[in-house]
């Protein structure tokens, strides 16, 4: 073994370690996008009503990087129900549910953002690839605990569940969808969600006028 090989090996080890260390901190991974979104919300360029759609576009871009929307949609349907979905229904459902919850979230923060502060409390590592990050949002000195379940997907930490005041996003929709599907078809569920998204779009239109 010559010097060159050893130095290459060292370089590889050093960089490998850095990469691992980086991947191992879900809380830090989450801070970036949250700060970016807060920045966009504060940016006066987007404060005109006509710019809200553009602002939402920007936030979507960031959210898609950090939220594992596919997994979230999948997790709201129980295992045996999911197997009853055709691949086309699976895809349709995933898309419309993603749009639905994304719109809800952005509408809420766009209309209600008054210098809320996001405080990162701590992270809990369950396994090497599963963690929970605890945060709280402070508005008018009212504190709302928001926790994120994150997992490692292809080397990136992604959110696959959110708890607001202890209420689980996955759990809440899972119960609702299960009850709905007990009496109605999968296509009905997709069309109800589509209607909701249409409604969201209409409301946005009104807001922006």
């Amino acid at each position: 073994m010559n010097i060159k090989t050893i130095s290459w090996a060292l370089i590889l080890i050093v960089f490998g370690t850095i990469r691992l260390a980086h991947a191992a901190q879900p809380m830090d991974v989450l801070k970036g996008p949250v700060d970016q979104i807060v920045k966009i919300l504060k940016d006066p360029r987007y404060h005109a009503a006509s710019k809200k759609a553009l602002q939402r576009e920007k936030m979507w871009g960031i959210a898609r990087q950090i939220f594992d929307f596919k997994a979230i949609a999948r997790g709201t349907i129980s295992r045996y129900r999911w197997s009853e979905f055709t691949p086309k229904q699976q895809e349709e459902f995933t898309n419309v549910f993603t749009e639905f919850i994304g719109n809800l979230y952005f509408k809420k923060i766009q209309s209600a953002y008054h210098n809320e502060k996001v405080v990162f409390l701590k992270q809990e590592m369950f396994t090497k690839s599963k963690a929970r990050v605890m945060t709280k949002i402070i508005r008018d000195s009212v504190e709302t605990p928001v926790d994120y379940s994150m997992w490692l997907q292809d080397g990136h930490w992604k959110i696959f569940n959110v708890y607001v005041e202890g209420v689980s996003l996955l759990g809440n929709y899972r119960d609702q969808f299960e009850r709905f599907l007990a009496n109605s078809s999968i296509d009905d569920l997709v069309s109800v969600l589509k209607k909701k998204v249409e409604q969201q779009k209409k409301e946005k239109g009104v807001e922006e006028q």
């Binding site: 999948r74 997790g75 569940n161 689980s168 899972r174």
Partner: peptide, 10 residues
Amino acid sequence: TLYAEAKAGT
């Protein structure tokens, strides 16, 4: 993992 998480929330 995903289903366990979803179930725990119900």
